Amino acid sequence: MATSTIVRVQRAYDCTAEAVYDAWLDPQLARRFWFATSTGEVIRCTIEPNVNGRFTIVDRRRLEAGPDTEMDVEHTGRFLQLDRPRRIAFSFGLPQFQSHETTVIVDIEPQGDGCLLTLRHDLGPADEEATEMLERAEGGWTTVLENLEKTLKGQ
C-alpha cells in the first residue's frame, strides 16, 4: 500500500467550536479566509453546506510578473462529512493545476472557552508531485487558519 503525503496544521482559537465550524460554511465569512491571499481577493464564493454539497471559491491573485498581471485560481470540492461542531471533511481540487481531487479533514476540539482546530490534507501517494506540493500546501493552510482567526475577531 502506498504511503500518503499528509499536511497537518493546527491553531487554537479564543472562540467556541461552533463559531469556528460555522465560519467554514458561511460564504460571507468563508470568502474572507478560505484561500484569501495578501495580494489578491476572493471574487466568488459559493457553498452548499450539506453532505455532498459543493463549494467553489475563486481568488484573483496578482502574479510576480507585474502589478497588472492577475490570475483567477478556482478551488472546488464536495463536503464528505459534516458533524457540527467537531468535523468537516471535504474533497478538494484545483482544476487548473491537477487532474485529481484530494481530501481535507478539519477537526475542531472544544477546549475551555476556546477550541483547537487540526487540519489534515491528504495530498495522495508520496510521489514527486506530492512532495513538491507539501511545502506550498502547508504554507497555504497556515495562512487560511491565520485569516480565519482575523475573520473571527472581526478584522
Rank of each mutant, 00 (worst) to 15 (best):
W141Q: 09
R61K: 01
E138P: 03
L148D: 09
V51E: 15
A17M: 08
M71V: 06
G154S: 09
V104S: 10
T143P: 03
L119R: 05
S38M: 04
E41C: 00
Q155A: 15
W24H: 15
R32Y: 07
V20K: 05
L29E: 00
F55H: 12
S99N: 10
S99P: 11
I57H: 03
M71W: 03
A65Q: 12
T3A: 12
I57D: 04
F97D: 04
I88G: 08
F97Y: 14
G93T: 01
P125R: 12
W141L: 05
V42M: 01
R60T: 04
R60E: 07
E74K: 14
V58D: 12
Q155Y: 11
A30E: 07
E146F: 12
F35V: 05
K150A: 14
G40T: 09
Q10E: 15
G66F: 07
E132M: 10
T5W: 09
T5A: 13
G114V: 02
F35R: 07
V104F: 10
V106S: 02
G139K: 09
L148F: 12
E149K: 14
L119F: 14
R11H: 05
G93L: 03
T76H: 05
P67S: 13
R86D: 00
D113H: 09
L148E: 02
D127N: 15
L117M: 14
P125K: 11
L82A: 06
D14E: 14
E101W: 03
Y21L: 01
R32I: 04
T142I: 04
L145R: 02
D127G: 15
Q28Y: 10
T37Q: 13
E129L: 07
E41F: 01
P110K: 03
L82S: 11
D113Q: 13
A23Q: 03
A2S: 11
R62S: 08
R11N: 04
D14Y: 00
D22K: 12
A2R: 05
V58K: 13
P85Y: 08
R60Y: 02
L80A: 05
R32E: 15
L25G: 02
Y13S: 02
A12R: 14
F92N: 06
Q111I: 08
N52E: 13
F55D: 04
I108C: 07
G112D: 00
T118D: 02
L63C: 08
E101L: 01
A30R: 07
V144A: 07
T39M: 00
R136M: 08
L119K: 08
L82V: 06
N50P: 00
C15V: 14
I43C: 13
I57P: 12
P85D: 06
M1N: 10
R87Q: 14
D127T: 13
D83H: 11
I47P: 08
L152A: 04
R87N: 08
R61Y: 00
E149F: 05
E132W: 08
A36F: 10
A30W: 08
L29S: 06
H100T: 14
E146N: 14
R11V: 02
F35H: 14
G77F: 02
L152D: 12
T37P: 07
S99L: 10
W34C: 00
V58Q: 09
T143C: 02
R61I: 11
R8D: 03
G66P: 05
Q10Y: 04
K153Y: 06
I57R: 01
L145G: 10
V7A: 13
